[in-house]
Computed example of a mutant assay.
Amino acid sequence: MKFKDKTIIITGGGKGIGRAITERFVSEGAHVIICGRRDPETLPENTHFLALDIREAEAAQTLIDFAIEKTGRIDCLINNAGGGPPVASAEASPRLTEKIVALNLMAPIYLSQAAYPHLKKTNGSIVNISSVSATRSSPGSVVYGASKAGLLAVTTSLAMEWAPEIRVNAIIVGLVKTEASEDHYGGVKGMAHLSSALPMKRMGAPDDIAKACAFLADSENSYVSGAALEVFGGGEPPYFLKIAEEAYNLK
C-alpha cells in the first residue's frame, strides 16, 4: 500500500494502458482521478472520472481543480493519454496535425503547469508516457513521433527546472497488446507474427507499463528524475538484419 491516501491523476485512465495504470495504483491504496472523452463502462474503487477533452488548453485547470475538490491533494500526474492515426505525411491536414500535437505534447505541458503548485506542496512527481516512435523513425506517423520526442525534451527540462521539489520522468513504451491491438497489428495472426520477431517473444502487457509507473511515482526512488525508462522488452530488431538475411538467401 505504498500509495495509501495519495492522489494520482491519470489522463486516459479508463481503457487500455491507462486502465491498467489506474488499477495498479488503486491496488496500492491510492485515490485515482482519471479523465477521457467518454465515460468508462466501470470504475475501480476509489476512482473519480471527469469527462473532458485534454486537447483543449482550459481542460488542464479544470481537471486539476476537480482533483483538488475530490481529494484535496495531488501526488503524481501521469500524462498517459495520446495517440494519432496513421496518415501519409504529404496528405496530413493542418487540422489533424494540430490535434495530434495538442494531444501528445501540448496537453501534458498544460497539465504539468496546472499541477505544479500542488505537486510542489507534496514533493510529487510527473510521469510522461512516451513511445519508441520518439526514438526511431516513424514513417506514416511523423507528427506522432515528433510530439512524443518533444515530450521527452519536456521531461528532461522540467526535471531540471522543477527540482528538487518535483521529479519528472518518462516511459518509452514499446509494442503493447491492448483491446485495440488486433485492428492495429493485422489481427491475431499479425500479432503472433510480430510477437515472434521480438526479443521477448511477446508484446508488452498494459500492466508492464503500470508497474513502471508505480516505480517512478514511488517517493522512495527520490533520485530518479529526468529519466526515460525504456519498457519495450529489448527493443525491435533492426530491419537491416532482415535485409541482410534476405540478401544472403539470394546468393
Rank of each mutant, 00 (worst) to 15 (best):
S147N: 00
G83V: 12
Q61K: 13
T135K: 13
P164R: 09
F66Q: 06
S112T: 14
L151G: 10
S138F: 10
T71C: 12
S130I: 13
Q61M: 06
V154M: 01
V127L: 07
D75L: 08
V142G: 00
W162M: 01
S137L: 08
I74Q: 04
A107R: 04
S93H: 04
I68K: 12
T155Y: 01
G124C: 10
K121F: 02
S93Y: 07
S112K: 04
A153Q: 12
A88D: 14
I129T: 12
H118R: 03
R95C: 02
S130N: 11
S141D: 07
R95F: 12
E58M: 10
Y116W: 08
A115W: 00
S112W: 11
K120C: 07
M106V: 14
S130W: 10
R136M: 13
G72S: 11
A67Y: 08
Y144A: 03
E165W: 09
A114L: 04
P94V: 02
L119V: 04
N79I: 14
G124R: 10
S138G: 01
I78T: 12
M160S: 05
A134E: 00
N79G: 13
A81P: 15
Y144V: 09
V143L: 14
S133N: 14
E165I: 01
R95L: 12
G83F: 13
E69P: 09
T156I: 05
E58V: 05
I129N: 09
A57Q: 13
S89A: 15
N123R: 15
T156G: 05
M160V: 05
W162F: 05
A114I: 04
Y110G: 00
I166T: 10
T71D: 05
D75T: 06
S133G: 15
I100Y: 04
V132R: 02
V132I: 15
Y116M: 10
S138A: 15
K120W: 06
T71W: 02
L63I: 12
L152M: 06
L105C: 10
G145L: 07
V154Q: 01
N128F: 14
L111K: 00
A102E: 07
E69M: 09
Q113F: 02
N80S: 10
A81I: 15
T62Y: 00
L63W: 07
I78W: 06
E98R: 15
K70V: 09
G124L: 07
S112D: 04
E58R: 13
S125A: 15
T122W: 05
S89F: 15
D75Y: 11
E69I: 03
A102T: 10
E165T: 12
S112M: 09
L119P: 03
G84P: 12
V87W: 11
R73M: 01
D65L: 05
S93R: 00
P139V: 03
K99Y: 08
S141G: 14
T71G: 07
A90Q: 09
P164D: 06
R73H: 01
V101C: 06
S130R: 07
L152T: 03
T122Y: 06
I74S: 03
R73I: 03
K121W: 01
T156N: 05
V143A: 08
M160E: 02
L96D: 10
E58G: 08
I126D: 06
A59K: 04
N128L: 09
T135W: 03
R167H: 09
W162T: 01
L103G: 09
A153Y: 07
